[in-house]
Design a protein around this nucleic acid. Structure first.
Lengths: 186, 186
DNA sequence: CAACCTTGGCTAATGGGATTAGTTTTCTAG
DNA sequence: CTAGAAAACTAATCCCATTAGCCAAGGTTG
């Protein structure tokens, strides 16, 4: 048998790609093995289970999400930063729907879980994006949660084709950003 | 064999209860059959598949969600209506986490799908809740989508235990309502 | 160079969940 | 009282995750 020369990162990367292509819930060990040119049980030399794969996809996604949002908000403040953050978020989800679904409700073992740490970094980035609004420190938590909830909700609706009417989702998106911007002042 | 005397609605009801108890993704045909005092294959006399059960749970959930929100906003307008709507939404999800998860990304076949129709009724109810803000008609769509996205996002984060910090989610919730209220004026 | 041993792949087998086929029992209408 | 529809049941199939146990590849070490 010629060796496939797999590395864990290659397995996770392929799994993430596959999740984006076929949908997170259709990602199966058999499919992943096929994509890697290997038999299903061989995967268990690199990952411990399907749940493990899913957890790693989630971690990858949150890490990448932090990267792109960090880039996006660089050099902006206030409403510009908010819009940049939201747009980066949405674009990532549009291009990586499977990865994104992996992050929804992904279980975390504790504070030393890489997924937790990636999440903490992302939260930190989002905090930076809000800096321009000069919120009182006791309100930052609420603002962050609001942002998370809003982006998440919008992304989910869009990802699952929740906008049935013909009206342009982009327009709604900008409308939403304006609303939050107004709300964060006042 | 004494007959269990099942009806489709009883099956779906038990499935919804079970989903709330054990978690949507742990709902299995075997578990459902056991709950109903019946063997697994017998269920197929009442529903066509697990996907069918899931779809029916989603429809039930959206219908009930419409009922409770409709009751909640009756007699209120403006910010009161908004708060009543949001609170009803959240309470329902808190009490019925499994049902709620069923609605996330539930596939719909078309405009004659009962799930679609329940969704349309709910949208109608939400429109009524916003009436007090006297929005220009071309903005109603955007406002509705924003509400949906926001509630959905908040509910998801709460359902999946997304609020890691010790700060009170209730406080965030009220903060969020204030923010939207401010945003809807202006 | 050759024995070695770790690594990564394979086949075969197990177990659980969904679903189908075919049979039997219970009601209910006539 | 009986026939036939409705609703259970048992047995069997298929798909997927996972485990057990075997084997080759290829670097390492004397």
């Amino acid at each position: 048998m010629p060796r496939a020369g797999l590395a864990r990162s290659a397995v996770v990367g392929a799994a993430a790609d596959l999740a984006d292509e076929v949908g997170y819930h259709n990602l199966t060990m058999g499919l992943l093995a096929e994509r890697l040119g290997v038999r299903t049980p061989s995967l268990y030399k690199h990952v411990t289970s399907l749940a493990d794969v899913q957890h790693r996809i989630a971690t990858l996604a949150v890490t990448q999400l932090d990267d792109v949002t960090r880039d996006a908000i660089a050099g902006w403040a206030g409403r510009q930063a908010l819009a940049a953050l939201a747009t980066a978020f949405r674009d990532y989800i549009r291009h990586h729907p499977g990865r994104y679904v992996a992050t929804i409700g992904a279980p975390m073992s504790g504070h030393d879980d890489p997924l937790y740490q990636a999440g903490a970094r992302l939260l930190h980035t989002m905090t930076a994006a809000l800096r321009g609004y000069c919120l009182p420190s006791d309100q930052t938590v609420h603002a962050l949660r609001t942002l998370r909830a809003t982006f998440h909700g919008f992304a989910t609706l869009q990802a699952f084709n929740g906008f049935q009417r013909p009206d342009d989702p982009d327009e709604t998106f900008h409308w939403l950003i304006e609303l939050i911007d107004r709300g964060l002042r006042g």
